[in-house]
Measured scan of single mutants.
Amino acid sequence: MTYKLILNGKTLKGETTTEAVDAATAEKVFKQYANDNGSDGEWTYDDATKTFTVTE
């Protein structure tokens, strides 16, 4: 399945997607991506749209 990440950071904004077997796997990928790019904030997940959002 395709999962989407929306970044609403102070310095990093945008979207990216990943293919993953489940939401937990996608979350690990996205959290590593956000960490690698210095983005940290409040995470939410919408199962209906398969979208993670991180807001700083």
Results as ranks from 00 to 15, higher is better:
M1P: 10
M1L: 12
M1S: 13
M1D: 14
M1E: 14
M1V: 13
M1T: 14
T2F: 08
T2S: 07
T2Q: 09
T2R: 11
T2G: 04
T2W: 12
T2M: 12
Y3I: 04
Y3E: 04
Y3C: 04
Y3K: 03
Y3T: 03
Y3Q: 03
K4R: 12
K4L: 07
K4C: 07
L5T: 02
L5N: 02
L5A: 02
L5E: 03
L5K: 02
L5F: 05
L5S: 01
L5C: 09
I6T: 03
I6Y: 05
I6N: 03
I6K: 06
I6E: 03
I6R: 04
L7V: 09
L7W: 12
L7Y: 10
L7I: 15
L7T: 05
L7F: 13
N8V: 13
N8K: 11
N8H: 11
N8C: 15
N8T: 10
N8W: 12
N8L: 13
N8R: 10
G9F: 15
G9R: 06
G9D: 04
G9K: 06
G9H: 06
K10G: 10
K10R: 12
K10T: 12
K10Y: 09
K10D: 07
K10Q: 11
K10E: 09
K10S: 11
K10N: 11
T11Y: 13
T11C: 15
T11Q: 09
T11E: 09
T11W: 13
L12I: 13
L12V: 13
L12Y: 14
L12M: 12
L12C: 15
K13Q: 11
K13M: 09
K13A: 07
K13L: 07
K13I: 10
K13P: 05
K13H: 12
K13F: 10
G14D: 09
G14Q: 13
G14Y: 15
G14V: 14
G14T: 14
G14S: 14
G14A: 12
G14P: 05
G14H: 13
E15T: 12
E15Q: 10
E15S: 10
E15W: 14
E15R: 06
T16F: 15
T16L: 15
T16I: 15
T16H: 14
T16Y: 15
T16N: 05
T17G: 03
T17L: 07
T17V: 08
T17Q: 10
T17D: 04
T17K: 06
T17E: 07
T17N: 05
T18I: 14
T18Q: 04
T18V: 14
T18F: 11
T18L: 11
T18Y: 09
E19Y: 15
E19I: 15
E19C: 14
E19T: 14
A20C: 06
V21S: 11
V21A: 12
V21N: 09
V21W: 12
V21G: 08
V21I: 12
D22P: 01
D22T: 04
D22G: 03
D22L: 02
D22V: 01
D22K: 02
D22M: 02
A23P: 08
A24F: 08
A24E: 11
A24I: 09
A24L: 10
A24G: 07
A24Q: 10
A24P: 07
A24R: 09
A24W: 08
A24K: 10
T25P: 00
T25M: 11
T25H: 11
T25F: 06
T25I: 06
T25W: 07
T25L: 06
T25E: 13
T25N: 06
T25Y: 06
A26T: 00
A26V: 02
A26C: 01
A26R: 00
E27R: 08
E27C: 15
E27P: 00
E27Y: 15
E27A: 09
K28P: 02
K28A: 12
K28N: 06
K28F: 08
K28Y: 07
K28S: 08
K28W: 07
K28V: 09
K28I: 09
K28T: 07
K28M: 10
V29Y: 15
V29K: 08
V29C: 07
V29E: 06
F30W: 00
F30P: 01
F30Q: 01
K31E: 03
K31C: 05
K31S: 03
K31M: 08
K31H: 07
K31A: 05
Q32W: 05
Q32G: 06
Q32F: 05
Q32V: 08
Q32I: 09
Q32R: 10
Q32A: 11
Q32L: 08
Y33F: 12
Y33C: 03
Y33A: 03
Y33R: 03
Y33D: 01
A34D: 01
A34S: 04
A34V: 15
N35K: 15
N35Q: 15
N35F: 14
N35S: 14
N35G: 09
N35I: 15
N35E: 14
D36M: 12
D36K: 10
D36V: 11
D36G: 06
D36C: 11
N37A: 12
N37W: 14
N37D: 04
N37Q: 13
N37V: 15
N37S: 09
N37R: 13
N37I: 15
G38Y: 10
G38H: 10
G38L: 10
G38N: 10
G38A: 08
G38D: 07
G38K: 07
S39L: 15
S39H: 15
S39R: 10
S39V: 15
S39Q: 14
S39E: 11
S39F: 15
S39Y: 15
S39N: 11
S39D: 05
S39M: 15
D40E: 12
D40W: 15
D40K: 14
D40H: 13
D40T: 14
D40C: 13
D40V: 14
G41I: 04
G41Y: 13
G41E: 03
G41F: 12
G41V: 05
G41H: 06
E42N: 09
E42R: 09
E42D: 11
E42L: 12
E42P: 03
E42F: 13
E42V: 13
E42T: 13
W43V: 02
W43Y: 02
W43F: 04
W43R: 00
W43G: 00
W43M: 05
W43K: 00
W43L: 04
T44G: 06
T44W: 07
T44P: 00
T44H: 13
T44F: 10
T44S: 12
T44K: 08
T44D: 08
T44V: 09
T44M: 08
Y45H: 00
Y45R: 00
Y45E: 00
Y45F: 05
Y45G: 00
Y45A: 00
Y45M: 00
D46Q: 03
D46E: 06
D46A: 03
D46T: 03
D46H: 05
D46M: 04
D47G: 07
D47M: 07
D47N: 08
D47P: 14
D47S: 10
A48S: 11
A48D: 10
A48T: 11
A48P: 06
A48E: 12
T49S: 09
T49E: 05
T49F: 04
T49Q: 06
T49V: 04
K50P: 01
K50H: 11
K50V: 02
K50L: 10
T51L: 03
T51M: 03
T51I: 05
T51S: 04
T51A: 03
F52G: 00
F52M: 00
F52N: 00
T53R: 06
T53Y: 12
T53P: 01
T53C: 06
T53K: 04
T53N: 04
T53V: 08
V54H: 03
V54T: 02
V54Q: 03
V54E: 02
V54K: 02
V54R: 03
V54M: 10
T55W: 10
T55Y: 08
T55V: 08
T55P: 01
T55M: 07
T55I: 08
E56Y: 13
E56V: 11
E56R: 05
E56W: 13
E56S: 10
E56Q: 12
E56N: 07
E56D: 11
E56F: 14
E56M: 11
E56A: 10
E56T: 08
